[in-house]
């Protein structure tokens, strides 16, 4: 009678699941375009290029991201900053910055390579395009706006989660070596446009960071 016992056990499983789905929140499927599932903090989504709070770009055109990229999907060209109106605080700035999203494997090595936390990843994941040219994101789309919200390739995007777009800087700053919360002795987030992010537990405060830098100098 083992077979009948197993049969009844199976029926109990399906009835319990059915009860949980109907009367409790056992339903796993989300109605995607209507509701968005909460993504993990360190979700590897689309890249953005960040700005400092004063509006200058963080990218210094060093091409380390392009060098680190295992898929060779990043193309960067740096250029000397114009002295009267500098684009970035450093000597040079990223003049051309293209990412081929058809090649990108979303490994995040570019984020780790970046010395200034200029390139970070976001929670944006809706990157479908209707032709291959559109899949190459240029600096226009990658660079965040003055207020820190990421640019979108298409003005009208019915599928975009606009609440999430406001968080352009993204939690993926966490993958930058400077921002890893659990990393002892490493300093807090670098400031970014549109972001007020206090130092977290284990991070030294922004003030300490500058002190440290001055002390080293």
């Amino acid at each position: 009678m083992g077979m009948i016992g197993e049969f009844i056990k199976g029926l109990r499983v399906t009835s319990r699941i059915g009860y949980e789905t109907v009367f409790k929140d056992g339903q796993l499927t989300t109605e995607y375009p209507k509701e968005f599932r909460e993504k993990p903090q360190r979700f590897h989504g689309r890249h953005v290029l960040n700005r400092y709070p004063d509006g200058t770009e963080k990218c210094i055109g060093c091409e380390l991201c392009a060098g680190a990229c295992p898929a060779h999907c990043i193309y960067v060209r740096g250029k000397d900053n114009p002295p009267d109106a500098p684009v970035s605080p450093g000597e040079r700035f990223g003049f051309v910055y293209d990412i081929n999203m058809l090649r990108c494997i979303f490994c995040g090595l570019c984020v780790e390579a970046c010395p200034t936390e200029a390139i970070t990843m976001t929670h944006l994941f809706e990157m479908s395009v209707t032709n291959r040219d559109d899949a190459i994101y240029t600096k226009n789309e990658l660079l965040v706006n003055e207020d820190g919200t990421p640019n979108h390739m298409f003005d009208e995007d019915p599928l975009a989660d606009f609440e999430e777009l406001k968080d352009g800087d993204g939690w993926m700053r966490a993958t930058a070596p400077g921002g890893r919360a659990a990393y002892e002795g490493v300093i807090a987030w670098t400031p970014a446009a549109g972001k007020e992010r206090p130092a977290e537990k284990g991070q030294t405060a922004e003030q300490d960071r500058t002190d440290e830098a001055e002390g080293e100098a």
Binding site: T14, S15, I17, G18, T21, G26, Q27, L28, T29, E31
Partner: peptide, 10 residues
């Protein structure tokens, strides 16, 4: 519907 409910679906 019934089968979907029993499989955590909609």
């Amino acid at each position: 519907k019934v089968v979907a409910d029993m499989q955590n679906r909609i």
